[in-house]
């Protein structure tokens, strides 16, 4: 079973990973975006880590709700409301139990990913974070390691795609050949989940 401490470890690991990879995320965002993805997410997840330390919410759902709210209010770019919605909706779907099963987490994450799809209007294949998140949620039933691998694979597979959402979509065919920064950061978030599980 996964308790609030597990979810705090997830968010802390995500903050550390985003901090380490911020320059790479921003570099990916330079040719097809506005070169702020890494710095925006670094600021957002630093705020998440600080808020969790200060408030120490006692349930998995409350940890993710707080994290999501922080991302919406501190990121400043489109990834803020998108990741914020992912975590808040996932947290809401987890309810207020003190512990949740991996199956419950997988189901709640699917609800969260659906909310992101509704918010941003993106479908698989549009070259967005959805391309990493959907396969990750599908593989989560198997293991955290399988989810990480699926997210990474999904992010890598965005390179040949033509962007259909967000600023990159204005570039049309010129977006082809660049790996999507949002799918890349989504894969980091899923990898942090495996890290939190200690697998």
């Amino acid at each position: 079973m996964l308790d609030a401490e597990f979810f705090r470890r997830w968010m802390t690991a995500a903050a550390a990973s985003v901090d380490r990879e911020a320059d790479r995320l921003t570099a990916l965002d330079s040719p097809i975006g506005d070169a702020d993805h890494g710095s925006n997410l670094r600021r957002g997840f630093a705020a998440v880590a600080a808020a969790l330390e200060k408030e120490a919410p006692g349930t998995p759902g409350a940890v993710l709700a707080l994290a999501g709210r922080q991302l919406i209010s501190t990121v400043g770019g489109a990834s803020g409301p998108l990741y914020g919605t992912l975590l808040r909706r996932t947290g809401k779907a987890l309810g207020d139990g003190a512990e949740v099963s991996t199956e419950q987490l997988a189901e709640a994450l699917r609800t969260g990913v659906d909310a992101v799809r509704t918010l941003g209007g993106a479908a698989p294949g549009d070259k967005t974070m959805i391309d990493a998140l959907v396969p990750a949620v599908d593989a989560l039933g198997e293991s955290f390691a399988a989810a990480r691998a699926a997210a990474e694979e999904g992010a890598a597979a965005t390179t040949p795609l033509r962007a259909r959402k967000g600023r990159a979509s204005y570039l049309g065919e010129r977006s082809i050949g660049h790996r999507d920064p949002g799918a890349t950061s989504a894969a980091l978030l899923v990898a942090a989940l495996e890290e939190a599980a200690g697998e």
Partner: peptide, 14 residues
């Protein structure tokens, strides 16, 4: 556009 739209939508959903 972009994050302006998404931020308002996310706030409304809250």
């Amino acid at each position: 556009l972009g994050s302006a739209v998404l931020t308002v939508k996310a706030l409304l959903a809250e």
